[in-house]
Design a binder for these strands. Sequence first.
DNA 1: ACAGCGCTGTCAACGCAGTTGACAGCCGGG
DNA 2: CCCGGCTGTCAACTGCGTTGACAGCGCTGT
Lengths: 226, 226
Amino acid sequence: MTPEERGRPVRLDRERILDAAAEIVGTEGLPALTMRRIGAELGADPTAVYRHFRNKRELLTELADRLFATEPELDPQAPWAERMRASMWHAMRRYRSHLDLGLLLAGQSDELPSLVRIREESLELLTEVGLTLEQAAMFSQVIENHVVGCGLFFAISGWHSDPPHETLEAMRRFYALLPADVAPLCREAAPHLCPDPDGVFAYTTDLLIAAIERTAAAAGEEVARA
Amino acid sequence: MTPEERGRPVRLDRERILDAAAEIVGTEGLPALTMRRIGAELGADPTAVYRHFRNKRELLTELADRLFATEPELDPQAPWAERMRASMWHAMRRYRSHLDLGLLLAGQSDELPSLVRIREESLELLTEVGLTLEQAAMFSQVIENHVVGCGLFFAISGWHSDPPHETLEAMRRFYALLPADVAPLCREAAPHLCPDPDGVFAYTTDLLIAAIERTAAAAGEEVARA
DNA sequence: ACAGCGCTGTCAACGCAGTTGACAGCCGGG
DNA sequence: CCCGGCTGTCAACTGCGTTGACAGCGCTGT
């Protein structure tokens, strides 16, 4: 209602705007993030934002970069597989929280600093275990697909929070009620369908880690033989 | 310009509307699919659509169901691994073409007939090779995550068509130009980064198939021992 | 110290989106 | 034959991103 706090027009900068945007996305989700809503959050005119960002896309890009810039804490003492696993889990959780944002920005494929940082760390881990740069680049992509695919399942359904046990249960009930002549296996397997997403992620993650270690060992043997 | 073809107001039904919508999405992409655009395509008033669909979401849901309802042709003579591979490739291509749609609708998690059909076929293949229903349910999810994750990489960038060789090359050039003190590995591995998406998919696909066969064999041994 | 200019917030408005309610014409059933 | 409902049309509402004109604050150069 009041465009000013204490008789003075509000003073904005990119930082304050991004703070407000992050607050809105965090509490109300991405669809609620409109220019007008940001203006309201700041107690300023919506169009004031355009003095600091060219357009909404630029704002979203910068916001995404900020939200993706969290680093996993890896214990450098831990064995390699442990660190790899922790890194992948961290990446998955990051996507899980903000995949809608990630999708929007990746859509225009701006190369964000935070994404570069993620790729760099991925390559560090993969080369450390003995992969060539070419192999590391390949597995880095395999991992990213894996992480995105799993993170998607959360973001897709709007579950920003952790385990939507009730939703999964509702889906299982749906499968259980399918007519037997249409989807007999779905009906029969209903109690096991929509398995715990974390469990699925854990399984595939370990599968990939094992494949990486196997590849690294094979490369190592070749080197030793020569 | 003329709302009628031969002096008569146009006559619509769900089928004709969905045809028009599919045509628009196919040629101009999902963002171009507006109610007004559909009306124009049909030579009718945009609001006429609301006589046949409650709102745009209902239309999108039905459209997605139609676009996802393509079946892979599997040679029943072929060995199991071959059929599994073909099925996964088909699924990936399906997502690749229409992932934007898939995301939008899965967002509201309507259970579409075509998605049920896909799950049913997945379970058929997985139980055929010897998995229990529980294992099959689990791997079915693993496969879906894998397929979505890879399909995403295409849809994300708006490449509905096949191989965006030039785009990948541009990204590699970007990585090559990074300052060495920020991302030395990205810089060094640049020529190998952004590997061919089909190659990445093929690798992970074979990895999963091998894991499934191993699991099935282990289960078979247990049965044989008992 | 003061004139001037640019940065930045405000206001009104545009175009386009989805959607609604009132109206009108066509159709089929009693 | 008439009436009621289905369905296309029209005008309009709300909300979105965005633009251009305007106004005030504050910094700079002389």
